[in-house]
Nucleic acid binder design. Structure first.
Lengths: 230, 230
DNA sequence: AAAATAAATGTAATTTTAACACTAAAAATT
DNA sequence: AATTTTTAGTGTTAAAATTACATTTATTTT
């Protein structure tokens, strides 16, 4: 250990809370867990845990999410730190929030095996413990800003999707109705989608063409920092 | 203390590092401090300190900034948390960064009294300790994004300023040259400035009209989330 | 056979953005 | 004293992006 004079400083518990947004082609949802320890045992809560000494925060978020939901390989992004002194009545804790977007259909089998975990429509989610509702609000604001910054379909949709699905997703995030033709024109003009020969036959027997993201073109554009104002 | 089972969890040191950007009508600058304790004593560093148990992070940032620079009443905003396991060789610390924008002229007397504190042009700042350079990069990116999100002249300019100053500020932040007429037209069209009868006589004897922000109109627009793409 | 649902497609009007040059006042230079 | 340089101030036009908007086709339902 290098010589230092940090020894007189206070140490704190550092929590990580994960805000997992999901989409099922209609509604924006959030994944919550029924807390199984005190305080507030039995209440609905974000997916959370504590940072361990030997890991960084990104790793902690991944570990905690996996431990409580079985979800793997979910890319999460830091949102904000909450540090109000009495935010957790039991003990002084600071909480770092992370958020992710996932396609519910792709990940659902795993999640459903875990018992006290459940998807809620964002609009009718239960009251959450501590300052978790505030955390969700902050994450929604971030999600909305990000949706305008670059297309987010990658994470929230299955690999192949229809224009309708993509539009519904944006409508759910931005809480507006969008014009179908303008939406399609805008998306197409970004030149980041590949139109497949396949059709999705689930919502009509006529079928709707499937698209997928052109990862390469997409990456190139993200580097230049393009904006995707719908 | 409420019953809880947090007791087995690790606690960590939580640092706060402040990135203070300044503007002197020409260049974007950053305020740095020469570290006076080990490790890395004598090297240039962000303005930093540790969170105390009885304060939240916003308060800690304000206290630390005041303690090291004498600056008061500076509004800072959270940027990001850095948590790489060995980022500080002395001991495991996690650091929360905050940033602020200030007008150098308005605040300089206070700062200059403090000895090991100094303004550097962003472009030729010295090498910083630990991951502080990374922190600065992240804060610059945030500053740039924010400059496009809403006008930031409030904090970086004196109360009364000329169009030229405002334009120089944007040019410094965005690292581009802007067209004078287009810039003025754009700013005027936002309808958030009040043109004063006074003139600034410092840069020419002809004088340039001074403006100030119309705080009320500005607040109303910020609520609606307007964007200020220059 | 008629009505209803989902998919696909293009144009014209409006708004926003970008490019661009001169005049006036005063100071500095010759 | 004349010339050049610096700073301030001001509008127009072309190009690009955004918005509003309606019909046809395939298929299923009644």
């Amino acid at each position: 250990m290098v010589l230092n004079n940090y020894s007189k400083e206070d140490k704190v518990l550092l929590a990580v809370d994960c805000i997992i947004f999901g989409f099922d082609n209609e509604e924006l949802k959030i994944l919550l867990v029924q807390r199984d320890f005190e305080p507030e045992k039995g209440k609905w809560s974000l997916i959370g845990g504590f940072l361990k000494k030997e890991e960084n925060l990104d790793k902690a978020a991944i570990r905690i999410l996996h431990h409580l939901t079985g979800l793997n390989n979910i890319y999460m992004e830091q949102v904000y730190i909450f540090s109000k002194v009495d935010r957790d009545p039991a003990e002084r804790t600071i909480s770092v929030t992370y958020y992710a977007l996932i396609d519910i259909a792709t990940h659902d089998e795993k999640i459903l095996k875990q018992n006290p975990i459940q998807w809620f429509n964002l609009k009718d989610a239960p009251k959450l413990i501590f300052d978790h509702s505030l955390m969700v609000e902050k994450a929604i604001a971030r999600l909305r800003r990000r949706a305008l910054g670059k297309p987010i379909g990658f994470e929230l949709l299955p690999e192949k999707f229809t224009m309708r699905q993509l539009q519904k997703l944006y409508e759910a995030i931005l809480e507006t109705k969008l014009d179908k033709r303008n939406f399609i024109n805008k998306v197409i003009s970004q030149d980041i989608l590949i139109k497949l020969d396949e059709k999705d036959m689930t919502s009509s027997k006529k079928g709707a063409y499937l698209f997928k993201f052109d990862q390469e073109k997409y990456n190139r554009k993200v580097e230049d920092g393009f904006n995707f104002k719908i």
